[in-house]
């Protein structure tokens, strides 16, 4: 555990909680892509099946349980409790264009050809692109609530911090996971445009709106 890894995890946790609180307090999931949230629930489920097979630490287990629990709670709020506020018309990204190629890639390029390992790889690949429906929705409506941008910033920072963590682990532990690193780079690159808008607009007190 190093500072990048810990702050990355906490940033991830903050993102998840910001989103849950935003929906809960406003009693609305307007502007939130339910499809991205379903993808994240799939990501956590596929990755954390090792909860049943291996124990790493109390920290590791509790974070996994919290992430999974919050992911399903978010999906429940969007598709059940506050379904009336869900903006399905603008959430029109075709997720099969992500899930199918990513599934194929996980079968082809993995560390070990075993069911759990392929599911882990699938979750790593899927996570790297799972935010695309949300970014697509924002580009379609041309705007995002400020609280939604805070959510996206924390979520994007999490994998960015993990990149620093991997550099650290490579130098100090000789640890090196090519699949996670490449997917993490892709994931971070997808946020670059958003990071730019966040710093130049949201941090200066303006609402995030895109030119028509």
């Amino acid at each position: 555990m190093n500072i990048f890894r810990l702050t990355g995890d906490l940033s991830h946790l903050a993102a998840i909680i910001i989103l849950l609180l935003k929906i809960w307090k406003s009693r609305s999931c307007a502007g939130i892509s339910g499809k991205s949230q379903i993808l994240f629930a799939i990501v956590f489920t596929a990755r954390y099946l090792d909860l049943l097979t291996s124990f790493i630490s109390v920290y590791n287990t509790s974070m996994k349980v919290i992430y999974i629990g919050c992911a399903y709670a978010t999906v429940y709020l969007i598709y059940a409790k506050f379904r009336a506020t869900y903006d399905g018309n603008h959430d029109s990204f075709r997720v099969e264009f992500l899930v199918v190629p990513v599934g194929g890639l996980a079968v082809l390029i993995n560390h070990t050809f075993s069911p759990l390992e392929i599911l882990w790889t699938f979750s790593i690949y899927l996570e790297s692109v799972a935010i695309l429906p949300q970014l697509f929705m924002i580009s379609k409506t041309g705007e995002a609530e400020t609280i939604t941008t805070h959510y996206l910033f924390c979520l994007g920072m999490y994998r960015t911090l993990y990149l620093f963590n991997w550099v650290w682990r490579f130098y100090f532990e000789g640890f090196f996971d090519m699949i996670a690193i490449v997917a993490g780079l892709v994931q971070t690159v997808l946020y670059c445009d958003f990071f730019y808008l966040y710093v130049t607009k949201v941090l200066k007190g303006k609402k995030l709106s895109l030119p028509a």
């Binding site: 291996s54 560390h111 963590n165």
Partner: peptide, 10 residues
């Protein structure tokens, strides 16, 4: 080789 690789990250 091991069928299961331990993944210690989240």
């Amino acid at each position: 080789h091991a069928l299961e690789i331990p993944h210690d990250e989240l």
